[in-house]
Design a protein around this nucleic acid. Structure first.
Length: 285
DNA sequence: CTTCTTGTTACTGA
DNA sequence: ATCAGTAACAAGAA
């Protein structure tokens, strides 16, 4: 599941690779992945180039010009893989095959640039999307996003303000993109474990230390995950088709029925906010 | 065969 | 107004 650290990794890589390269060909294999009328989508992009690439939450934003932006959301199983001419890379969804070639079975959209390099949008479950928007629609879209957890805006006071008047469990709060943008199931579980807070705890019952710990751990864990280029346990790969290695640092996510790394009691799995949630009953209160 | 997997939106009901 | 829960989307793993 690509969350903030995974999207940030892809975005940073692409920013040094494909900016200002002329798009000479666009192939759409699965039209529903493109959320615009196809003819206009192709016409507006062909012979143009991406001038900037940004991220907001889990959304990638490619700027074509000041009034045209390509939004790409990978949802759960999307991949964005960039390949220089003639370079055969690992990756795709069959990551056991080291010579996996692109486009593949799950490549729904890809761009070819003037230097023959290519950008492939793969998505096994077809929930991801690409959408061209103007500045007005971009701004409207971005209104729905909460604070960026790694920005200077996300202070302890800001978190306290966000928690004010909220009555829900803390995991649902962390997952709500309109409150804080970019945290998904993996990092929500990791943040709560590190903060010793039980995922079902009501936000109004959190004490000052717990709120401060959640604030600190959110920043720390997301930053560390970016440093290790994200978490791969199934589909996620970076823009070179390579896995992220933060999997090796996960403390609780995907460790159900294994001993807690801190206290050795067995990690439980329950459902919270509709998601599988891993937790330690002894460490998290 | 069934069940589970998850980001987001839409919808229902409390 | 808020929030919880569920279905939907789709395809694969176990």
């Amino acid at each position: 599941m690509p969350e903030l650290p995974e999207i940030e990794t892809i975005k940073n890589d692409l920013a040094v690779k494909l900016l200002n390269k002329k798009i000479v060909q666009i192939k759409v294999n699965l039209p529903k992945i493109v959320k615009n009328p196809l003819a206009g989508f192709l016409k507006k992009l062909i012979n143009e180039s991406f001038k900037k690439v940004n991220r907001r939450g889990k959304l990638m934003i490619f700027e074509i010009n000041k009034d045209l932006f390509l939004l790409i959301h990978l949802r759960m199983t999307g991949q964005l893989i960039y390949q220089e001419k003639g370079v055969v890379i690992a990756g795709g969804h069959s990551d056991t095959k080291l010579d996996f070639s692109l486009p593949g079975k799950h490549t729904h959209l890809y761009f070819t640039f003037a230097d023959k390099s290519q950008l492939f949008f793969n998505d096994l479950r077809q929930f991801g999307y690409a959408k061209l928007v103007d500045k007005k629609e971009l701004d409207q879209t971005l209104l729905r996003f909460g604070v960026e957890p790694l920005s200077a805006d996300f202070t302890l006071q800001k978190l306290k303000d966000l928690l004010k008047n909220k009555k829900r469990n803390i995991k649902a709060f962390l997952l709500d993109q309109q409150v804080i943008a970019g945290i998904g199931n993996i990092y929500a579980d990791e943040i709560l474990f590190a903060s010793k807070v039980f995922p079902l705890r009501r936000t109004e019952t959190l004490n000052a230390k717990e709120i401060a710990d959640i604030h600190t751990n959110t920043k720390k864990i997301l930053q560390k995950a970016i440093k290790y280029r994200g978490t791969t346990f199934n589909n996620y790969v970076d823009s070179e088709g390579k896995k992220g290695s933060f999997l090796n640092f996960l403390q609780v996510y995907q460790r159900a029925n294994k001993p807690c790394l801190k206290c050795k009691s067995i990690i439980k799995k329950i459902k919270v906010a509709g998601r599988g949630t891993s937790l330690c009953q002894k460490c998290q209160k």
